[in-house]
Design a protein around this nucleic acid. Sequence first.
DNA 1: GATGAATGAGCGTTCATTCAT
DNA 2: CATGAATGAACGCTCATTCAT
Lengths: 191, 191, 191, 191
Amino acid sequence: MSKPDKREEIVRSALELIAEHGFHGAPMAMISKHAKVAAGTIYCYFESKDLLINELYKDLEKRMYPFILDGYLPDRPIRERFIHLQTALLRYFINNPLDFRFLEQYHNSPYGVAHRRDKILGNKNGCDVFRDLFEEGIERKLLKELPLSILFGLAFGPVLSIVRDHILGFVILDETLITPVIEACWDAIKR
Amino acid sequence: MSKPDKREEIVRSALELIAEHGFHGAPMAMISKHAKVAAGTIYCYFESKDLLINELYKDLEKRMYPFILDGYLPDRPIRERFIHLQTALLRYFINNPLDFRFLEQYHNSPYGVAHRRDKILGNKNGCDVFRDLFEEGIERKLLKELPLSILFGLAFGPVLSIVRDHILGFVILDETLITPVIEACWDAIKR
Amino acid sequence: MSKPDKREEIVRSALELIAEHGFHGAPMAMISKHAKVAAGTIYCYFESKDLLINELYKDLEKRMYPFILDGYLPDRPIRERFIHLQTALLRYFINNPLDFRFLEQYHNSPYGVAHRRDKILGNKNGCDVFRDLFEEGIERKLLKELPLSILFGLAFGPVLSIVRDHILGFVILDETLITPVIEACWDAIKR
Amino acid sequence: MSKPDKREEIVRSALELIAEHGFHGAPMAMISKHAKVAAGTIYCYFESKDLLINELYKDLEKRMYPFILDGYLPDRPIRERFIHLQTALLRYFINNPLDFRFLEQYHNSPYGVAHRRDKILGNKNGCDVFRDLFEEGIERKLLKELPLSILFGLAFGPVLSIVRDHILGFVILDETLITPVIEACWDAIKR
DNA sequence: GATGAATGAGCGTTCATTCAT
DNA sequence: CATGAATGAACGCTCATTCAT
C-alpha cells in the first residue's frame, strides 16, 4: 500500500466511524483497525485525535464548497441564487450522508463551537457566499430585516433537521420533495 | 437528607453537568460529588449511566410539555395556536438553557436516535399536540401538503439553530426578535 | 486488606521497584501488580505517578530526619556533632538501602533538581541542622572558609559515593570502616 | 555528508540531548532529527539505543583521559600528582558540562553499574593512573590505609557533588575556588 | 549504505461499575 | 439504603526498532 493510500484509508475510516458512532464511540484503536494500519500509524499523519478531527473537517469543507458553488451565477436574482445554493447543499448531504453525520458531530462539540466562534468573528471562508447573499437581500428589501444569525437559522435549521431525518430513514427525501422544502425555506426568510 | 431529595439532587446535578460538559465530560464520580452523595448511591436509583440519562430526558419532557401547553386553546385558529406553541417552546429554551443543552446532547447521540425512532413509529406522547395541529392544518389546506417530518423540520429546525446561537452568545434573542422569528417559521409551513 | 494497608503496600512496592529499576523502569502496572492491587487503585491514593514519587520522597524524609537527629546534642563540640550526624546518616543508608537507592534516583531527576533549588532558596527543613552546624563552624574558624555548597559537597559527596559502592557490593562498609570514613570527611572540611 | 561524518553527528547529537534531557527524554527520533539523518540510519552504526549509549561512554573516556594525563609527571611527589589529576578532572568537567551530565546519567543507570562492576573486577583502563597513585600512596604511608574504593569515594565524591552544583548554578566554581576544593580532597585522603 | 513510513507493545491515566461494610 | 474504596478494561499516545525501497 502506498503512502497516500494509508492516509486516505485512515481519513475514510475515521470519517465513517465518527459519523456512525460519534467522537468517543470511535477510539483510535477502532479507526486504525478499520483502516488496516497499526495504532501508531495514525500518528505519522496526525499529531493527535483532535487534530485528526479538525483535519477531517477541513477536508470536508474542501469537498463541499466546490460542489455547492458549481454553476453558481452571482448575477442571477437573489431567490434563484438562494435556491441554487440550498438545493446543492441538500443534494450534497443526501449523497454524502457520512459527511453530514460527521458535520453534525463536529458542530455539536467543543471543536465546532470554537470553529463557529472564529467564523463569527469575521474570518473569511466558503460560507461567505451565503453571508453576501443575505446581506444583499436585506439591503434590497427582499429578505426580512433580521440579524444574519437569525436568517442563517431560518435557512439552514430546517435543512439540517430534514436531512437528519432522511438519513435516519424517518422520511424519504426524493426529488419531488427537494424543491418544496427549499422553497419553504425561502418563504421563511423572504420579506 | 431524605430519600427523594437524594434522587432529586442526583438528577439536578446530572442535568447541569451533562448540559455543561456533555455526556463524556460528566463522569459519574463528578455527578455524585456535585450531588453530595457517594458514587455508589446513584446506582440505588439508576441501574446505569445510560438509564440515568434516559430518565433525565423523561423528567425534562414532564417539565416542558405542561409549560408549552399552558394557556393553549385548541379552538383558536391554527396560526394562533402554532404561534402560541412555538413561542412557548422558544421561551422555555431561553429560560432553561440547561434543559436545552441537555436536549441537544441527547438528540445528538444514540439515545436520541432510538427515542426518535420509537416516537415516529406512532407512540403517543406530549409532542402530539404539534402532530395534531399540523395534520389539521394540512387537512384544512392552511399548511403545505408535505410529510409531517418535513413540517416538523421546517418549524423546529430554525428554533433549535437560533436558540443554540442565543445560548452560545452569537445572537441576543430579545423580546423584539421572538415574534418575527416565530412568524418566519409560520411562513415556512403555511400554504 | 484494610485501607491503610493498601496504601502502605503501594508505597512499599513503589519504593522498592523504583529503587531497583529507576523511575521509568518501574511502570505503574508493575507497581500495582507487586502491591497486589488493581492498576486504578494507585490513583485512589496518588493523583499521578509524579505525585506518588514526591510523596515517597516526603515519607522518606520523615523517616530519615528523626533517625539522624536521635541523640543529637547541639551543645557538644562541632567535631563531635558532625561525626554524630554523618555516622547516623551513613548507618541509615546502610540499613535502608532501598531508601538510599530511591534518593539517588530522585536527586538524579527533574524532581530532585527542582526540590534542591527550592531548598537552596532558603526554605527550612530537616537538612538545616547541617547548615547551622557548618555556619557555626565557619564562624568559629574551625571549618574552611568556603561556600556552604562546597562544604556540603565535601562532606556528603564521599558518603554518597561510598554508600553506593557498599550497596552495589563493591566494598563492605563494616563497623571498623565507618569511623575512618567519617573522620576523613571531617579532615576535608576542617581548617 | 561522508560516512564518518554521519556517525560523528549522531554521537554528538545523542550526547547533547541525553545530557540535557536524560536517556528517556531523548528518543531516537529526536536524536536522528537533531543529527539530520533518518531514523533508521542510527541503526547502521549502532545496533540499539543501549549500544549507542555505551559507545558514547567509551568515546567520552577517550576524550577525557588524554586531557587529564596531559602534563602528568609520574616522578613528581604523590601530593602534586594527585592535585594535578584532580584539577584536570575538575577543569574538564567545568569546560565540558555536557560530558559531565552524560556521565552522571550513565552512572545512575543499569549501564553504569554493569560498567563499574567490570572495572572493579580488575579490567585495565585509563582510570588506573589513580589506582596506581593511591596504591603507591598507601604503600608509602602517605595516604590513609583504606580500601581503594573508599579512597576513590573520598577523592571523587566531592568533585562530582560540587561540579553538579556548579553546572546547575547553585555555586560558581571560579579559579579561586578550585585549589581549595582539591586541597580539601587531599586532606580527606592524606594520612 | 541510507531512508523514513510503519509497526505494536507498552505507557500513564480514566471511569462506569461493584460490593463489603 | 448508603457508602466509597477498589476494580480492570479501555483510552490516547509514545517510541525503539524494522524493512521495503
